[in-house]
């Protein structure tokens, strides 16, 4: 079996289980000082959606954190992991652990999917490994920083608009519930629309979207029809994988919808 690489043992921060994560961080939280966090940019934000990374930094700083960024970070290894090539996945995971996780600060990612990969996937790759301390952004804001309402400091509020919040599925793996909805709905210029089959997956599924592409597109179009019917102008989510796929369909079919990460919405409220 594969064990945790020895060079990442020791300094790597472990938490014991999903349920106890909220507990563990309190001891890490420096009294009086700023909470330092490391940004896990994620490969999609790195390659296509820089604005999401910028918004995530601004959001975390607005929430009182000091953000560190390790420039050697790459990809968490989820693509080969989900495809069944765990040899390749272990190589990427080992690199990510060295680049990102060998620090005392908690890691925050603007993605439920990458957080789930590190927290729940790595222990599948390495027998005996506990769940590394990586948080999805909304999870970190709500549960660790205890923010339930976003503090808006911008003088002129953005124009009112209707959005549909797509709860990205990989949040399930780390126990996300309504954290993103709670934060987004506290923005006074945002009207959150209910839509049909709200809980259903968008059909992205990583490599699935290319290997099972007619199925993926069919599921995605069903999602988009439901959202258009709700009157929303914008799809907001916490995972850029979903939005990358939906955006490809939106552009192909010229559907009147934009896609945004929820961090971008929160950043709109920061002066």
């Amino acid at each position: 079996m594969n064990h945790v690489p020895s060079n990442s043992r020791g300094t790597l921060t472990f938490v014991s289980s999903k349920a106890e994560i909220g507990e563990d961080l309190r001891s890490l939280n420096p009294i009086g000082g700023k909470q330092r966090v490391r940004l896990m940019l994620t490969c999609l934000v790195d390659s296509f959606f820089g604005e999401v990374g910028i918004a995530s930094v601004r959001v975390l700083e607005h929430a009182g954190c000091e953000v560190l960024f390790d420039k050697d970070q790459t990809c968490c290894g989820q693509p080969p992991f989900n495809s069944g090539d765990w040899t390749a996945a272990r190589q990427a995971a080992g690199f990510t652990m060295r680049a990102l996780l060998e620090h005392p600060e908690p890691v925050v990612a603007p993605s439920g999917s990458c957080s789930a990969m590190v927290r729940e996937g790595y222990p599948m790759l390495y027998e005996g490994m506990h769940h590394p301390l990586v948080f999805e952004l909304s999870e970190f804001l709500v549960h660790q920083l205890k923010i339930s309402e976003w503090k808006v400091t911008v003088k002129t509020l953005p124009a009112r608009r209707k959005i549909a919040l797509h709860r990205a599925c990989h949040g399930r793996a780390i126990g996300l519930k309504d954290e993103q909805a709670m934060l987004v709905s506290s923005l006074p210029w945002i009207e959150m629309m209910e839509f049909g089959q709200q809980e259903q997956c968008c059909g992205f599924g990583g490599a699935f979207c290319a290997t099972h592409n007619s199925i993926s597109a069919g599921i995605g179009m069903e999602k988009l029809h439901n959202i258009v019917d709700s009157g929303a102008e914008e799809i907001v989510s916490g995972d850029m994988g979903c939005l990358l796929h939906l955006n490809g369909l939106i552009k192909r079919h010229k559907i009147p919808l934009r896609t945004r990460h929820f961090a971008e919405l929160l950043a709109e409220g920061i002066a």
């Binding site: 790195d46 296509f48 820089g50 910028i54 420039k71 290319a210 990358l244 369909l249």
Partner: peptide, 22 residues
């Protein structure tokens, strides 16, 4: 690529680059 483009348009880089900004 073909699996992607049969039903979707290719993604394009949106907005600023994070690393340049940082």
């Amino acid at each position: 690529k073909n699996g992607w483009t049969e039903f979707r348009d290719l993604p394009e880089k949106q907005g600023r680059d994070f690393r340049k900004w940082w």
